[in-house]
Computed example of a mutant assay.
Amino acid sequence: MGTGVGKAIAHLLVSFPDTARVYITDLNRETARATARTINISMRHSEKKCVGTDFNAEKDSLHDFLRLFPEISVIISALPAKYSSALAASAIECGRHFLDIGGIVAVTKNLMLLDREARAKRVSVISGNGLMPGTGMIWAKLFIYIFDLVKNIWITVGGVPQNPKPPLFYGLPFAMESLQHLCCDQAPILERGAIRMANPFSYAGLIKVPELKNFFNNGEVEAFITAGTSIAPWTMQTFGVQNFWKRTICWPGFMKGVENISPENFENEIKPLLMPATSADNPDLVWMKVEAQIAKEGRLAARASLTLFDLFDEKTGLSALERTTGFSVAIMARLAALSETKLGAAAPDCALGLKGMGDYMEELQKHFSIAWKYQSFT
């Protein structure tokens, strides 16, 4: 549902040989049909494997929609998070799996309350899919499975223009709501074993990213704490992790440019300062690093990390942010359709067992540059 990042989700879904049909929706039927037509042409599907139709989350009934298309087994919401709770409840009633692109604590907690109903209907409700918290948290959980005692986990991630321009050095996002959450919401973090709320832009500093050295400012970026980990800090706490948080990267100048923008008038104030939306003329890149510190006998014994790097795809016209977000969602949706996800309501890292995580990683590596690094201190 949604033709923004939804087109990237549909793009990968139609490429899977076991996908029979993908329906992509928009408020405007012609927009949905045009998006589906573009996907079919780019994927060379003459049988129209992707179909576009209209759906209004505020007015239309999901029950009625599924009566028209009863073959649908998974509902994916790429709509604003405010629609997730109602859509998830309807999907459960209809016996369908449900996924959203979340990361907002209140929304995810509401969906977790649907666990009993989802189990009774033998479906999965998975909230917070995408690059982060989705893939980022799956990687974090993998480290916990692999190593005996993970003491600290830090995630650093961001999507930025390849050729940034002042004043903010940041492009118009596909969801303004998401940018406002990053800039304005307090972030739950795990610090010294306790959950606390951190202000946005706290723990700020400059870091050098080797993968970005050929783009701008010799690869030096701002990194600062933002919301977007959903309920992950509480999950990490149950596994004995002492410190866990996520920092977002932007090109230098972003923090100074947004620090005085009011939450009440956020969109109106920030829009004139942003670069145009990502396109072939204004390509983007995405970088994410998940790092774990492993302890032994009270001392730091090793450090492990996974790093993902992606660029705007000129062939498909998909931005790096659309690809990394949408493809992550599509992979999880396929696993749900194949009954490889936990029944009930869960965050992505809790929806998969070790085998499912392996399948997820195997598919992810087909589409992105992913580097593994391990350093032992013993």
Score class of each variant (00 low, 15 high):
34 A>D: 15
218 N>D: 09
353 G>C: 09
10 A>W: 02
303 R>G: 04
152 N>Y: 08
185 D>H: 03
58 E>H: 09
203 Y>N: 13
206 L>S: 10
323 R>P: 13
15 S>G: 05
191 E>W: 10
300 L>C: 10
353 G>Y: 14
130 G>R: 03
183 C>G: 03
297 E>T: 03
284 D>V: 09
46 S>H: 13
246 K>S: 13
48 K>C: 15
298 G>Q: 00
296 K>F: 07
161 P>W: 03
234 W>T: 12
305 S>H: 11
232 A>R: 01
43 M>G: 14
37 R>A: 12
192 R>Y: 09
28 N>D: 11
28 N>A: 09
242 Q>V: 08
247 R>T: 07
347 A>V: 04
257 G>K: 01
354 L>G: 07
61 S>D: 15
2 G>P: 03
359 D>R: 09
249 I>K: 04
193 G>V: 09
287 W>L: 12
3 T>A: 07
207 I>D: 08
140 A>L: 11
281 D>S: 09
190 L>S: 02
89 A>Q: 14
206 L>A: 11
324 T>P: 11
181 H>L: 00
152 N>M: 06
185 D>N: 04
123 V>I: 06
368 F>R: 02
54 D>S: 15
46 S>C: 10
324 T>N: 07
265 N>W: 02
296 K>W: 07
254 F>I: 02
310 D>E: 11
142 L>N: 11
71 E>T: 10
110 N>T: 09
268 N>F: 06
222 E>Y: 11
169 F>W: 13
357 M>Q: 15
207 I>P: 08
169 F>N: 14
70 P>L: 11
107 V>S: 00
273 L>K: 12
109 K>S: 12
195 I>N: 11
60 D>N: 14
140 A>E: 02
102 G>I: 02
10 A>Y: 07
234 W>I: 10
334 R>A: 13
327 F>E: 09
161 P>V: 00
222 E>S: 08
111 L>C: 08
231 I>F: 03
196 R>S: 09
244 F>H: 07
229 T>H: 01
359 D>M: 14
47 E>G: 08
140 A>R: 09
263 P>M: 04
74 V>P: 07
53 T>F: 13
143 F>K: 04
320 A>V: 03
